[in-house]
Design a binder for these strands. Structure first.
Length: 627
DNA sequence: AAAAAAT
């Protein structure tokens, strides 16, 4: 099982990358002249002490300090208010309790997780010696402390990702998983990390911080955005409550001092965005030498956002134990080539997991499209919101998310709503991190149940209880639409999405109609007419016939595709079979599923041909339509 | 036009 858990991993078997004159902080230079890795590259992982090596068999849990919960923490500076947390060391479950209060809803479908929907979700696993999936948390030996927290979280049984992923990681294997936000993947990687740390690391004995004040966490979780890091941090804190495990978070946009202060108290699990993490490593505040678990969340988004170099730097050049020594989990909604390369470089003999999203989950979102001209939009919005608040009086507390096109539009909409007596707030990229978080928080807690947002909030954010998404301004790209409406109908709950369609949205008509038909939505006839008469823009999608239910394929299985050695060539084969022109700009083979909402957005072939090929033919026409 | 991330 731990066949690769060896320090004699040959450097030749791993891809060596020229590390071009990257700055190396003094504390990382020449860490170990006897390292099996080349000495002149910064990647000098040092197995400095056998205690950091984890036996394949379970050892006795080391004695650990009891978490003292909210009782301590008098040492922080009360005047520094961390951006994302109004309270530095609260009992993480207090947040939960607030949510319970918020949830006035009496209907069963709106409480907790709708497990019935999850049961329909198919999972495919490939790789060698796949560990058996678990049907219940009890089947998995996670330990009492963690089990207690799972109960506190009111998790009844594992979601499909969890059923498969947790045993894989518990068995010491690496994992590459295709799963969306809302599928329970945070718990899927947190549970085995926490359980593993409790079993194998000396938590609570100051092991995660050394004498010189350098924090050496056992687990690192990387995520693309600050808000996401923050979410994961909060979850991880709930899961590790009263275990003695210390969880910390590092992200930018906020003063580094508070985060550093926290680190000095020791960190077992660090959640971070790449930039701030590198900053801290270079300041010699964090060492990655003891990393046993590495989790990369939403890897495709990180690459989309141009983080590849930074991620590679963190993983390959900062002294982190190599694949096979550490355990790595890679989560991504899609599997384009760059992600596959990442998997090849970061993982060792991994299990490939793909978690399908069946059509029914998209059907949970009722999509409505109304024809509203720009000048009438505010009136119509007002009507919708009034209707909505009438419903709230019947006992349902509903959160409404309104998407607009511009940051300025978001601000003016917020002001207008507030002047008209609605409790609204706004979020967009021009707001300071603090304001963004404050807005999000007041929205989440229901203090301001209306959030006006730009696309900053379209992807990845998991705000529970959003019952209505209004596309006040429709996006130009159907993928963005899919992401936006995916903010509702989360965790298997139903949701409503209303869109205001006007003349200038006509290029979107065709793909919108297709999407709605796919999701078994009633399409208004005027919209169908638009779709037939107007030129389609961007990803005019044609769905895969009988489409794959899954979000990706294990490209290691594709080696027998006519001489091709990877997924890339099989994609071409696919495309040729459909008789599509073979246009293949880099990165075209991206998604079977959109990154988050779980819709089958495009097959590899149609995406390449439709989204990237044809539009060039009528680019001027599109431009003309917009101006 | 907008968005994300280290200062």
């Amino acid at each position: 099982m731990y066949a690769t858990d060896s320090y004699t991993t040959s450097p030749q078997t791993r891809r060596t990358r020229p590390s071009r004159s990257t700055y190396l902080p003094p504390h990382l230079r020449n860490t170990n002249p006897h390292s099996t890795f080349s000495d002149h590259t910064p990647n000098s992982y040092t197995p400095d002490s056998p205690t950091h090596r984890f036996p394949p068999t379970r050892g006795r849990a080391p004695p650990r300090g009891r978490g003292r919960g909210r009782g301590r923490g008098r040492t922080y500076l009360p005047r520094i208010r961390p951006t994302f947390h109004s309270n530095p060391d609260p009992n993480p479950f207090e947040i939960f309790e607030k949510f319970d209060d918020l949830e006035i809803s009496e209907s069963e479908e709106n409480t907790g997780i709708n497990y019935d929907v999850y049961d329909d979700i198919p999972v495919e696993a490939s790789g060698s010696d796949i560990p058996e999936p678990a049907n219940s948390f009890n089947e998995i030996d996670l330990g009492k402390a963690l089990n207690d927290n799972i109960k506190r979280c009111k998790y009844v049984k594992p979601t499909p990702v969890q059923r498969y992923a947790i045993p894989v990681v518990m068995a010491g294997r690496d994992l590459m998983a295709c799963a969306q936000t809302g599928s329970g993947k945070t718990a899927a990687f947190c549970f085995p990390i926490i359980s593993g740390i409790l079993k194998h690391c000396n938590v609570g004995l100051g092991s995660s911080v050394n004498h010189s004040g350098v924090a050496s966490p056992f687990a690192l979780i990387l995520s693309p955005t600050r808000e996401l890091s923050c979410q994961i941090h909060e979850e991880a804190r709930k899961f590790s409550y009263d275990t003695g495990i210390k969880v910390a978070v590092a992200y930018g946009g906020t003063p580094i001092t508070h985060q550093l202060h926290k680190l000095e108290k020791g960190v077992d699990i660090l959640v971070a965005t790449p930039g701030r993490l590198l900053d801290m490593i270079e300041r010699a505040k964090i060492s990655l030498k003891k990393i046993k678990y590495l989790a990369l969340d939403e890897a495709d988004r990180m690459l989309d956002m141009g983080f590849e170099r930074q991620i590679r730097k963190v993983v390959e050049q900062m002294g982190m134990p190599p694949p096979g020594v550490r355990q790595t989990m890679l989560f991504s909604a899609t599997f384009p080539n760059d992600i596959q390369r990442l998997a090849t470089d970061f993982l060792s003999n991994y299990i490939f997991l793909t978690v399908g999203k069946v059509g029914s989950s998209t059907e949970l979102i009722a999509q409505r499209v109304e024809f509203v001209q720009d000048i009438n939009k505010r009136d119509r919005l007002m009507n919708l919101l009034v209707e909505q608040s009438a419903k709230e009086n019947n006992g349902k507390r509903a959160l409404t998310l309104i998407f607009v096109e511009t940051k300025r539009g978001a601000d003016s909409m917020e002001g207008w709503l507030c002047r008209n007596g609605f409790q609204a707030t706004a979020i967009h990229g021009d707001k300071a991190q603090m304001e963004r978080e404050r807005a999000l928080r007041s929205f989440k807690t229901g203090a301001r149940p209306i959030l006006v947002a730009t696309d900053v909030a379209a992807r990845g954010l998991d705000v529970p209880h959003v019952t209505h998404v209004i596309n006040y301004d429709l996006p130009k790209d159907i993928d963005d639409y899919v992401h936006r409406i995916g903010r509702t109908g989360r965790a298997g709950k139903s949701g409503l999405a209303t869109a205001f369609f006007c003349d200038k949205n006509s290029p979107l008509a065709k793909s919108l109609v297709q999407l709605m038909q796919e999701a078994k939505q009633r399409v208004p006839s005027w919209l169908t007419q638009y779709a037939e008469t107007s030129a389609s823009y961007g990803s005019s999608r044609s769905y895969r016939h009988g489409g794959s239910k899954f979000g990706g394929h294990d490209f290691r299985n594709a080696t027998n595709m006519g001489g091709g050695s990877d997924y890339y060539s099989s994609a071409y084969a696919n495309q040729a079979a459909y008789g599509e022109p073979c246009i293949a700009p880099s990165g075209a083979f991206t998604s079977y599923y959109s990154a988050d909402a779980g819709f089958p957005v495009a097959s590899v072939d149609s995406y390449a041909a439709g989204a990237y090929g044809y539009p060039y033919n009528h680019g001027s026409l599109v431009a003309g339509a917009w101006n």
